[in-house]
Amino acid sequence: MFRTKLKAFAVLGGLLAAAPSPAGAAGEAIAIPDTRFSFDGVFGTFDHASAQRGFQVYKEVCSACHAMRQLSYRNLQELGLSEQQVAAIAAQFQVMDGPNDEGQMFERPARPSDRFRSPFPNQQAARAANNGAYPPDLSVIVKARPGGADYIYALLTGYADPPPGVTMMDGMNYNRYFPGHQIAMPAPLNPDQVQYADGTPATVEQMARDVTTFLAWAAEPELEQRRAMGVKVILFLTILAGLAYAVKRKVWADVH
């Protein structure tokens, strides 16, 4: 019995080992440094203060080019902001609404129920304003890149001068961690670019960490609830497994 159970797990293990690894791209695989985030590990959580600062970085720096169409202003309450704060933040932005009774579209201040305002109305306008390169929507960027949050942080802190012998194409910037090392986005973060409300010094690493935390939350807002539920479920199932095994042994006692 043990031999066959072992076989089953070996088969399962083989399947897991054969799961596609992220670094399957042609050419050299770039190693992404591992960064410790508050949300790492089974019991990690999103540091709300960091995520709020990260939202400020997004609002003041990234939102000039990057949309986050899947998020609504009301979602910010999950980061610890009050209903009034969220309403105030939303009201800073103008969003399109309509048609009104004359058939016209009009602009009005955003409400918490509105989606984040996009910098461009569509992808073509975004490309036109950025030399043909499309600044991707950041709603799920952390899930959409191999390496996840580690990669985003590495990218934001990975700008450097090109090493000798490497010629940059027109308008491209050298980044240690971007596949191919030539990225259209210039280094977005400069020291003290943002004045943090809580007084935290706004170094590039700090801003990168904060905005990565914010983006990780934005991609997986259910993360904390999911893991908490997972712990309860697996604990429950483990106990049930013990009980079920005891029942099985009892039922089979007269046979073995």
């Binding site: 429950f236 106990i239 049930l240 009980l243 079920a244 005891a246 029942v247 009892k250 039922v251």
Partner: peptide
């Protein structure tokens, strides 16, 4: 979780009961 066929000992029924309730 399989109620015992032949009337089992009270211990077996209790185990079955707990397991079924859990499930």
């Amino acid at each position: 979780s399989g109620e015992a066929t032949a009337g089992g000992t009270p211990r077996r029924d209790f185990l079955n009961l707990v397991t079924t309730a859990f499930a």
